[in-house]
Design a protein around this nucleic acid. Structure first.
Length: 192
DNA sequence: GCGTCGATGGCA
DNA sequence: GCCATCGACGCG
């Protein structure tokens, strides 16, 4: 057996690429949230790519506003927003400054003996204590960050994105990615 | 197991 | 007036 090695934080260069490539590469990576002398870890199993202002499902398609400002900023920062008045969504800003792309973290598996149902973007934020106060956080710092997981090689399935039926021709783009073997993926699992 | 519905608040 | 959601309900 190979000796256990300390996992490394994902560097800025990992995030500074197209969301189309970052989204599948995030499957199997480890999300870490440190707060109040606690540390919660989870293995990411489901993501969605929002590929820029031309993508009608991407919030950046509405232009640069107070809400979408961080998406137009540097890669490797958190974009957290409120939806339906009660759920937070955690996204990761990718690509170059002014190229507004992001990856939505949709589901994960709790790690380290901690029990939680993280099978959906709202549940993930609720149970990992992610709030709008974390909007704009630098993910290469020490509060909220991701670790590489080089020995993890998930089998990845692609489907259309969830809950964006208003997005016309972008509705059917295969921009949702998940670990085909994980029980923590949200529904539906079928490539509808 | 399914489909449908309502909660709830920030934003444009 | 819209949501990148979730959980409760009714069905049969």
């Amino acid at each position: 057996m190979p000796r256990k090695r300390a996992l490394k934080k994902l560097p800025r260069s990992f995030y500074n690429r197209d969301a189309l490539h970052v989204a599948p590469d995030l499957i199997g990576k480890i999300l870490v949230h440190r707060f109040d002398d606690r540390e919660l870890r989870a293995r990411i199993v489901e993501t969605e790519a929002y590929v820029g202002p031309h993508d009608l499902a991407c919030h950046a398609s509405k232009g640069r506003t107070g809400r979408t400002e961080v998406m137009f900023g540097r890669a490797g920062h958190a974009y957290v927003y409120l939806i339906y008045g009660m759920y937070k969504m955690l996204n990761i800003v990718t690509a170059d400054v002014d190229d507004a792309q992001a990856v939505l973290i949709r589901a994960a598996e709790p790690l380290g003996g901690w029990q939680a149902d993280l099978s959906g973007p709202g549940k993930l934020c609720r149970d990992m204590h992610i709030t709008r106060g974390q909007n704009g956080l630098d993910l290469t710092a020490d509060e909220l960050f991701l670790l590489d997981n080089p020995d993890d090689h998930p089998k990845i399935t692609r489907t259309k994105r969830i809950g964006i039926d208003y997005a016309k021709e972008w509705t059917h783009a295969l921009l949702r990615f998940f670990d085909a073997d994980s029980p923590a993926v949200s529904k539906p699992r079928q490539p509808a």
